[in-house]
């Protein structure tokens, strides 16, 4: 799930306060936002862009590669089904607290039409120097700069810290993929690792995980088969079991989703697992040096 500079983006819920602010930032950065949706304001313009009554109506007039949703939790299912029906191939859901039942229904509908969903509860995606979709500080050049390290993260903030640490070490990013903090998401850690493994512009992959669920364990196979260095940081080593740690998906329950299980699975797959986020810059630099020596 990488959204490149040439890809067109529809903003669902474009007239809201947050959507207005972030649509402005996305366009300044270079994201090809073609307009938005608000059923109550169809036919009007907002920020100089057309507003349609639905994604389906928008898709009749324009080619749309991706949709991003600034929609309240209970409206997300309907908006996602609209985007799927419109034939949009990439759907980014930023909203937190979408009912799990709704997520399962919208993911099933997306799968039938071959649409890929990012999130819910993601901060979005960044292709440094080209575009970003969501609410990441892509425009902050102490954090994001074009490069060849692919980063995927269940947390937007922690992902930002990791990108900052890479930038401090002189390493730019090929892509940032926000997986999202919910227990059920459209693009899993394994999907993102496989996507970055297949991405020509990516030389190394940094996986930022956290306790809860089994996505990191399930990504171990993709990491082992990546053919490029994979470095990981997993948050929640010191977290007590049975407590939800910020994200709905970040909980150790019934002995599942523990730090130790994730670390062991990743290390068995040849992934270097870091103890603190500050180690990421030197670790990736070293892995890239090693990979180059091997290739040379």
């Amino acid at each position: 799930m990488i959204i490149g500079g040439g890809e067109t983006v529809l903003v669902q819920g474009i007239t809201g306060r947050q959507a207005t602010f972030w649509t402005g930032r996305m366009r300044e950065y270079g994201t090809a936002v073609i307009g938005g949706v608000n059923p109550k304001k169809a036919g009007e313009t907002h920020l100089g862009l057309p507003v349609w009554g639905s994604a389906v109506e928008a898709a009749r007039e324009r080619a749309i590669d991706a949709a991003v949703m600034f929609i309240p939790a209970l409206g997300v299912k309907a908006a996602a089904l609209d985007a799927v029906e419109a034939g949009i191939g990439k759907i980014v859901i930023l909203t937190e607290h979408v009912p799990v039942q709704d997520v399962m229904e919208l993911l099933a509908a997306a799968r039938l039409k071959g649409a890929r969903v990012l999130g819910p509860n993601t901060a979005g995606t960044v292709t440094p120097g080209e575009s970003f979709v969501g609410f990441m500080p892509a425009f902050n050049d102490t954090v994001f700069r074009p490069g060849r390290v692919g980063v995927l993260s269940r947390s937007g903030s922690l992902g930002t810290l990791i990108c900052l640490k890479l930038a401090e070490a002189g390493l730019g990013q090929s892509a940032f993929i926000g997986i999202g903090g919910d227990p059920i998401v459209g693009t899993t850690t394994a999907d993102a690792v496989a996507g970055l493994a297949a991405h020509d512009g990516t030389d190394a992959i940094v996986m930022v995980g956290e306790i809860g669920g089994a996505m990191e364990e399930e990504a171990a196979g993709a990491a082992a088969a990546a053919g490029k260095p994979v470095i990981a940081f997993i948050a929640g080593r010191a977290a007590p079991a049975g407590r939800r740690m910020g994200h709905a998906g970040a909980i150790v329950s019934g002995g599942r989703g523990t730090y130790d299980s994730k670390r062991a699975a990743l290390e068995a797959a040849g992934v270097r697992v870091l103890d603190t986020p500050s180690e990421v810059g030197p670790a990736v630099a070293k892995a890239l040096g090693g990979a180059r020596r091997k290739a040379g």
Binding site: A235, R237, A239, M245, D275, T276
Partner: peptide
């Protein structure tokens, strides 16, 4: 959560975890 992990990594103990949120 990560701050808590790093505290524990350097041998400290977090007295609490408070996510304010929103």
């Amino acid at each position: 959560m990560t701050t808590m992990d790093v505290v524990s990594h350097y041998g400290g103990r977090a007295a609490n975890f408070l996510e304010i949120g929103g």
